[in-house]
Simulated scan of single mutants.
Amino acid sequence: MTGTLDHVMMRVADLETSLDWYQTHLDYEEKERYEGDGFTIAYLGPEDMHDDGAMLELTENDDEVEYEVGDAWGHIAVRVPEGELEDHYEQLMDEGVDDYRDPESCGGSYAFVKDPDGHEVEIVQRDYGALWSLDHTMIRVEDADEALGFWTRKFEYVEPRSRWEASSFANYFMAPEDDAKEAMWLELTYNYDGREYTMGDAWGHLAVRVDDLNDDWEQLMLREADDYRSPEECDDLYAFTRDQDGHEIELIDRDPDSDSLFPF
């Protein structure tokens, strides 16, 4: 499997409100929309995103449920050019985005805002990738050794970017070994105090690209991955497994000649 992170899915209360927020403040464009039975999905991303760049998937259900973010779900991170963090953060403030964690409070290295549903959006500085493109997705894990082992054994991920081991927590950035630097990376956050996390339902899933859905699914089963939703259960269009903490991971086989981003 390629292992490249294809998209990250979050649930939102009102799709049009969320679309307006991301289109207005992050200059995202709607790539494609799917109207399902009782739900709507929209793919978003910068206009000039890299071929291996990840998309943001927003899902709205028609049942008007109020979602809980939970604390197992961390944040998405978006890129701005090196040296332009303050300027872009001030631009967001001028546009009326809530002041959540400004650059000064984060040592001048990054900042955070929140979208209309309370999903945290980190702003990081990079010398590559399109403006506002997805840099990484952070999830919290209860056992670092198990989490690192899961992504290493099941998906053949490595730690190519960095790790940060502080006095009370650690961050591990993981991705496939030969991934393009413009691709989205996975950040695993582990706190040393043994806390347990609530998953919440506002957090949806990560999606990983595979070369052949059924073959790669069988390989995951050999590696003792969780048989959560098999390809057969999903009409051989996609599949889902889960990590040791219950974070859902979709497997998707991208057809470059397809007229649609959705495998429906």
Rank of each mutant, 00 (worst) to 15 (best):
P116D: 10
T4E: 11
A42W: 10
E165K: 10
D226I: 02
I249Y: 07
G204S: 06
H247M: 15
G204F: 05
R229V: 09
V121P: 03
M55R: 03
K181M: 11
M138E: 12
G118C: 09
D255Q: 15
H205T: 05
D145H: 12
D102L: 02
L56N: 12
V124P: 00
A54E: 03
D245T: 07
Q244W: 02
Y100R: 12
Y128G: 12
K31L: 12
S18E: 11
A130S: 15
M174H: 03
D193Q: 08
D245Y: 07
I76F: 14
A111D: 02
R254E: 04
D63G: 08
E120S: 08
M9S: 15
D48T: 06
P46T: 13
A77H: 04
M221P: 07
E30L: 13
E182D: 05
F264E: 07
D257Y: 07
R161K: 12
V208I: 06
D135I: 03
E196M: 07
M10C: 15
Y67I: 03
A13Y: 11
D236N: 10
G194A: 11
S167W: 06
D212F: 08
R209N: 07
A147H: 05
D253T: 04
E165P: 03
H25T: 10
H247Y: 14
S230P: 02
T198A: 12
W21N: 13
R254G: 03
G107E: 04
E187P: 02
W164C: 12
F155P: 00
D243K: 04
A13D: 14
H205F: 07
V78T: 08
A170M: 05
L237M: 09
N214C: 06
V97H: 04
E120F: 05
Y238D: 03
L213T: 06
D253V: 05
V158W: 06
D20H: 15
D51V: 06
S133N: 14
H136G: 14
P263D: 11
C106R: 02
L220M: 12
F112A: 12
Y172F: 15
M174T: 01
D102I: 01
E120I: 01
R223I: 13
Y28F: 11
E104S: 13
